[in-house]
Design a protein around this nucleic acid. Structure first.
Lengths: 146, 146
DNA sequence: CAGAATCCTATAGGATACTG
DNA sequence: CAGTATCCTATAGGATTCTG
């Protein structure tokens, strides 16, 4: 049976996680609060729960605890409990956690050099949509230069 | 007025977003599907909607559309619409999107060298919790070597 | 083909209050 | 101080169906 258009395509790949080698890292390192926490620990060194809380001004203690627990479980952060009154708990980045430092530096670098472009692109996209950009005749390509 | 314990701490910082320079990037690049999409476009080049759909085996068309729209708006991906029947739409990574390539390479590198450590840490943490690791006397430090 | 529309759920995260 | 305990909401993401 002849197919009009669609030439048959193989399944291409089995596992999207495997297809994208960095997908697993995303779950570990990149969420709303994990990067700020790691950044704070890396930048300002070992510190207590309340210090982190003050630094990440808008975080709630519940979420801070959750993310710290996850980071501890993943071995990126170490927790030290001093049985005193009042209790003192200190968090520090581990060697494994520090191994992300160069990556973070690159990300910060990328941010400083490209974030503005993203902003401009967003603005252009939004105003285009708002003013009802004409869909002319032939192939329409959107977004800035390739 | 002498304070018992807590030496006063300054507000430390105003804005957590500003405190962590890579926080803004996280929203743009790192979510469940954005990295696999960017990876696919970067690795296999310009391709159609259905090709991406097949490559990212478990993604749904709705989510794929959403993420592609966001990437287009942010200028990381370009969409080309060919008014034919049936319609043909091609997506490709932009120059701005490609600027993330070295970063992705580093992330993939980190994954290949450190993911196993994370797995081990998780396992150790879980078995520790399960067997009720004794909280001895003095300072207790958890997680692997600093 | 490339999606739009609709409905649904799981969960990350926030707000608030309480405790060893 | 360093959390825990509840409650709540917003939203990312999934499943399904339909269309130009």
């Amino acid at each position: 049976m002849p197919q009009t258009q669609a030439t048959w395509q193989p399944p291409i790949s089995g596992d999207p996680e495997q297809a994208c080698p960095i997908a697993p890292v995303v779950d570990i390192v990149f969420s709303r609060w994990t990067t700020p926490i790691l950044w704070a620990l890396h930048t300002y060194g070992r510190q207590r729960f309340v210090e982190l809380e003050r630094r990440l001004t808008t975080i709630t203690p519940k979420v801070l605890t959750q993310r710290l627990r996850q980071l501890e479980r993943d071995g990126l952060v170490a927790r030290t409990y001093h049985p005193e009154v009042p209790p003192r708990v200190e968090y520090e980045i581990t060697e494994l956690g520090s191994s992300l430092a160069p990556l973070f530096a690159h990300l910060a670098e990328w941010a400083s050099t490209h974030l503005e472009q993203v902003e401009r692109s967003r603005h252009a996209y939004d105003t285009d949509r708002a003013t009802g950009a004409a869909e002319t005749a032939t192939a329409v390509r959107r977004a800035g230069p390739a």
